[in-house]
Amino acid sequence: MNIVEVNHLKKYYGRHRGVEDVHFTIKQGEVFGFIGPNGAGKSTTIRCALSLIFPTSGKITLFGLDSIKDQVEIAKRVGYLPSEVAYYDNMKVKDLLEYSMSFYGRPDPARLKDLCERMDLDISRKIDDLSLGNKKKVGIVQGLLHRPSLIILDEPTSGLDPLMQQRFFDLIEEENKRGATVLFSSHILSEVKRLSDRIALIKDGRIEDMDQIASLQSNHYKNVQLTADPEALDRFEGSDLIEVKQRFGDQLHFIYRGEINRLLRELARFDVQNLSMEDPSLEELFMDYYERPNNEHVSS
C-alpha cells in the first residue's frame, strides 16, 4: 500500500519556481530519503504534503486521503519535524509538549518521559532559553509523541550533536520497525545512506532520479581503472564514452556512463592488462548530479 503519493506536483511562489512536476510514491514501512541541495524543492514538497502551503497544480495523497481536503484526518497520523524549529518563546517545554499532545487525544506521560530521557531534554526550561540543538530535540519529541504512522522529517539532524544524532537515528529505526513509514529530507549523505531504503534526488525543483541507493549507485555510472598498452589508452582516451579522471602511463582512471556491454565490447579491441570497476560512492553520485547542467544525465 502506498502511504504517500505525490502526483505531478507543481508549486510556484508567484513567478519563482518551488517544484516542477514532482512525482513519487512511498510504500508502507519504507524509509524514503529526499536528497538535494538548498533550494532544490525538498521543503516545498514536504510542506505541500502537509498543506502548510498549497500546490499550484498536481495532487498529493497520504494514506489514500487528499492532502488538502482531509488535512485534519491526515495530521492525526503524521509526526512532523520542520527544518527550522520555532515555538512560543514564553512557554516552558513541558507546556508546549502538553499542548502538542492535547491535539491527539489522551496524553501518554510514559511516552513523554521516555522520549525526553532518550533525547536528554529538560522539560522544565523555557523555550527561549534553549539552544538550537535543544529546540530540535523538542521538535523530535513533539513529532514522535503520538506514535505517528508517517514520520516526516525535514533536515532533522541540523543542530544536533553526534551523540544525539545517533540516538535520533536509533529512535527513527525503532519507529520504522514498529511499522512507521518515514519520509525525510537531507543533504547529509551519511544519514541518508544509513536510514533510507530508497532515495529521490531532487534538483532545481525536479526529481532527477529515484531508486534504492545500491541501484542508483550501480546503475548510474562506474568508476573504472584500466591498465593497458599506452598507445591503446591514447586512442581510448579520446572516446566520447568516458570522462577521464586521471592518467598515469599505462593506467587510466575514468568514469563511464552508459550500457556496460558497450564498454566491454570497446575494451575487447585492446590488450587489457588489468581492469577494475566500482560503483560510485553516494557523495560522488550526489556531486555528479548537482554539478552537471540539467538534462545531461545518461540513463544506463
Partner: peptide, 12 residues
C-alpha cells in the same frame, strides 16, 4: 513566533 509549522501540522 515563527511557529506556524508547529501548529498548522496538528490535527486541527
Amino acid at each position: 513566533n515563527r511557529s506556524s509549522d508547529f501548529l498548522f501540522s496538528k490535527p486541527v
